[in-house]
């Protein structure tokens, strides 16, 4: 198993080595030591490798991921798994702001709490947070699912489009055009699958509430003009 120690190796060397994995390479499990909050660790991966990072990372870890499994054995800075396309990024500690921002696909799991703007502008990614999410989470969320096992902060789902939000704990406040919606059987099934994929067994999907778009701001109406102020 290749082990890269960022105390001595250049980040650029690590990322380029990960980008140039030949198809069918046997080096499918990588370990990264001493990240010490470094930015852009394991970004732009494009193959089904597993990268385990022993320690906390800075901004944009696992950014634009395709196919790879990235595990952060620590906490992640802003924008973890930003614009992910597929694969999985798992943060064992907490995630800072913008977790999973603009992600198109794949699964982001945060075992601790996620900070503000979790899932901002998400475009199809699934995000499962074991703890809480901060304010403005799922802001302008377009598609995908955000599952919050704990509480959500202020203005959840502000200006949301078609993303689905599931929150088990309290919601401090809902953002513009975000409303609570009925939890139908297909939602319970989906939620159960997401919790299962995230490895959070024993959490009852029926204990969640579902939120989504009221679709009142989709086309301008003078009666909603206050929401544009």
């Amino acid at each position: 198993m290749p082990v890269v120690d960022l105390a001595t190796a250049e980040l650029r060397t690590l990322n380029q080595a990960l980008h140039h994995q030949a198809p069918g390479s046997n080096e499918t499990a990588w370990e990264v030591l001493n990240p010490h909050g470094a930015h852009a660790v394991a970004v732009g991966l494009n193959a089904p490798v597993t990268v385990t990072i022993k320690g906390s990372v800075g901004y944009y870890c696992g950014g634009m991921n395709r196919e790879a499994q990235v595990v952060v054995d620590g906490s992640a800075g802003p924008g973890v798994a930003e614009n992910m396309m597929s694969g999985q990024v798992r943060v064992k500690g907490d995630a800072s702001q913008y977790a999973g921002a603009t992600g198109h696909g794949g699964l982001l799991v945060v075992e601790g709490n996620a900070s503000s703007r979790c899932g901002i502008s998400m475009k199809g990614i699934d995000i499962v947070v074991r703890g809480n999410v901060g304010h403005m989470s799922a802001f302008m969320a377009q598609a995908g699912n955000l599952v919050v096992c704990g509480d959500a902060g202020d203005a959840l789902g502000d200006s949301i489009y078609e993303a689905r939000l599931f929150v088990r704990g309290s919601v401090k406040s809902l953002g513009a055009d975000c409303i609570e919606k009925e939890m139908r059987p297909e939602h319970l099934k989906l939620l159960g699958e997401l919790l299962g994929k995230a490895g959070f067994d024993g959490i009852d999907p029926t204990s969640f509430k579902r939120f989504g778009s009221a679709r009142k701001l989709y086309n301008f109406s003078v009666d909603n003009a206050d929401s544009y102020g």
Binding site: H39, Y59, Y60, E82, F139, Y161
Partner: peptide
């Protein structure tokens, strides 16, 4: 068919100190 309003700020960085890190990420990718 919706009226699309895109954001005025980037979703995952604000200001030049953050931008420096964003540029670094794009270069790494």
């Amino acid at each position: 068919g919706i009226d699309q309003r895109s954001a005025c700020r980037h979703p995952d960085w604000t200001g030049p100190d953050d931008l420096e890190i964003k540029i670094m990420e794009l270069r790494e990718i």
